Each structure stands twice: as structure tokens, then as C-alpha cells.
Computed example of a mutant assay.
Amino acid sequence: MSLDLVPRFVGALPWRDTEPLECVSVVPEAPDIVSFSFRAPSGAWFDYRPGQFLTLELPVAGGPIHRTYTISSSPSRPLSISLTVKAQGASIGTRWMLDNLREGVTVKAIGPGGIFIPDVPADRKLLLISAGSGVTPMMAITTYRWDLGGQPDICFVQCARRPSELVFRKRLEHMATRVPSIKLHFVVEQDDPHDVWTGYRGMFNQLMLGLMAPDYLDREVYCCGPEPFMRAVRDMLIGFGYDMEHYHQETFTAPVLTQADAPVLDDVVPSAKVASEIVFAVSGQSVTCTEADTILAISRRAGLNIPSGCTFGVCGTCRTRKLSGEVHMVHNGGITDEDIADGWILACCSHPMGRVEIEA
């Protein structure tokens, strides 16, 4: 803290969104991802909860627009506030920020707001899962817990396309080297050219989750990223028997102001109380079962031999064609999207949702 700020902060009031914010720092984090730090010209301090967001009024060509961004800084450091933003191909507001927002420029802001906050005891174990710029609230939550001191038990999972797009990697590693109870796990889809990556590679899946956080049932889960990614995470947790009352998420497109505004998650949860039927076309057998059964388990019960290996959706040995009906399948990389589109399934991790006919 610089000396000229000390007296202003001691007697200052909390910032109110009637006062514009002054940009004081612009830091590139990754390709098309930049962190902007702001200060209140009056010397006011920032009062918010880790995981909340701000809405900026941006003076783009054609008239001002409003864009909402999660705060990436921690309220434990209240003299400034930071937003880490990513410009997509069709971005207007975020692209304006990257092209025009510099030190000394002021913008109007509304907030803070949002309910994506770790409203649990400080000793509650956390599992933070993010993809892309969904890492921003996780950074705020982790920094806040780190600043509180002690040994916060945090399992931090960040997924990105390649290592160069892992936002805050060095800052996270700095915290983890000093607080051993913060465990970091990075997952990338592909390597960077002319670089070496020795961490997890591929799409985040159940196997990775089990290795990273074997005590996941004891943790409060916070997830942020594109909806397909979060849906996959929910499927993993449901498949593991996780109590989804302890699952929380924030979306890119619609930050939630109040609990009443939170979207209802209509995830598929196979039930042992709902009857299903599997028809094995080649043998001509029809077997009644429930949604909680897998096609592989029922085939074995019927005396049929569907080849299998791992029984966990990895090896692809139990791949078989679905002729009709719907299944709920949570696999771990043993089948491609193209095969799924062509009607193939993995029997070991496919649950029949009603009447299903397979080529076996």
C-alpha cells in the first residue's frame, strides 16, 4: 500500500456505483484475455464478496452497451478491483475494452452483485472447477481464502484448450507453493507448439476427477464455464452419487442476481424406480430393467457376451450400436462424437431411458 493512499483509505467510505471507476492497470493474461484493475478516484474502498460480478457501461460506437464481468480480485484487497475479460470472435464490449481501455480512462459500473459466493464455513473443503475465463471467480475465491491465512483446503481444477491459455497459472502456483493444502490440477486439450506439457491432456472426465479429488463427496463444488462443460461436470458428479445440494455454478451468459433467478437444472438422473426395457436385436431377447442399470450389466444378466474391458467408458471395447430409443451415457473418452452421432454407444456407461433396442 503506497503512503499517499493510507490516509485516504482510513477515512474513506465504501465505493458506490454512482462514482465512475478509473483504470489503473492493464495486464495481458493469455491470447485475447486481459486483466483490468480499477480504483475509485475518491479513494473509496470496494466492498463485495468473492465470486460476485460488476456490470460496465461501455461507450462503443453506436451508443453505450452494458456487459457483465466476474470480479477476479479479492475483497481482502479492497483498494482496487479487477476484471479479467476474454474477447470472443463476435465480442463488441470486450473488444472495445481491449482496444481502448487504458490507464486513466474512466468507465461507469453497476454493482457488485451475484450469488455465486462460497457461503460456507471457512474450514469447508472446496472443489473449484473451471473452463476458459470461468476461472475468474475461482481466482477470487482462492485468493480470498489464501489471504485469510491458515491452511484452506482447496482442490482447484482449471481446463483450457492449451497451456498458454491457462489464466493466472503463475499466481496460482505461487499461492500453492506457500500453502500446501491448495492443490492445483490443469487440463488442456492440446499442446502448445514447441513446448512440453506433462499434465493432464484431453477432455476433463470422471477418471481425472477421481484422481484429482478422491474425497469429492466431502467437498463443496463450485463450477464455472460454458454450459456444455458444466453439464458434463454435473453428469460426472451425478454418476458418482454426489449430493447436488452442494453443487453451485455460474454461467457466462446470464449471471444470477438472486436465488429466485437461478435457472432450474434439468439434468438427467437415472432412477432405480423408473422401469426400462432393453431389446437385443440379434438374439431376440427382451429384458426389463430400470434406468439405473447399464446396458452391459443387463446383457451379462441375460447371458449375452458384449466384449468389455475397463467398464468405465475409457477403452471403447464395449462399443455397440443403438438401433432405437434413448440412453444416458457419461463416458471418459472411449468414444468419439462422430460415433455417437452415428448411433454407437458404450454399453458399460449407457443407461436405458425407456425402451432401447441395441445391435447385440
Rank of each mutant, 00 (worst) to 15 (best):
K108F: 10
A131S: 15
P118Q: 03
G132Y: 07
K125W: 00
R124A: 09
V135D: 14
P118G: 01
F116S: 01
P112S: 03
T136P: 12
K108P: 08
K108R: 15
G132F: 05
S133A: 13
S133G: 11
G111A: 04
A131Y: 01
D123C: 05
P121Y: 00
V135M: 09
F116P: 14
P112V: 02
A109K: 11
I110Y: 14
V135T: 14
L127W: 01
A109L: 07
G111W: 06
S130D: 07
P137Y: 06
R124H: 05
P121E: 01
V120S: 06
I129H: 12
R124I: 02
G132H: 08
G134T: 09
I129L: 14
P112A: 07
I110R: 15
K125N: 07
A109Q: 13
T136G: 08
G134A: 10
I117C: 08
R124K: 09
I110N: 13
G134F: 00
I115A: 00
G113F: 13
I115P: 12
A109P: 13
P137N: 14
I129D: 08
G113T: 09
P137H: 13
V135F: 09
T136V: 14
P118A: 02
S130N: 08
L126E: 13
L128Y: 12
P121F: 03
A109F: 07
R124L: 04
A131R: 06
P121S: 00
L127N: 05
P121R: 05
L128I: 09
I129R: 14
L128R: 12
I117L: 00
A131Q: 13
G111S: 10
G132V: 08
L126F: 11
F116L: 02
F116V: 00
G114E: 07
P121T: 01
P118T: 00
V135Y: 02
I117H: 01
I110S: 13
G134K: 06
G114D: 10
V120L: 01
T136S: 12
S133R: 12
K108C: 12
F116I: 04
S130M: 04
G134S: 11
G134R: 05
S133M: 07
A122G: 03
D123F: 01
R124T: 10
A109W: 12
L128G: 13
P137E: 09
P118L: 03
K125H: 09
L127P: 10
I117G: 03
L126W: 08
K125T: 07
P121W: 07
A109I: 12
G111I: 03
A131M: 07
G132Q: 09
A122W: 00
G113D: 15
I115G: 07
G113R: 15
G132M: 06
G134M: 04
K125Q: 13
G113I: 06
I110V: 13
P112F: 05
K108G: 11
A122V: 05
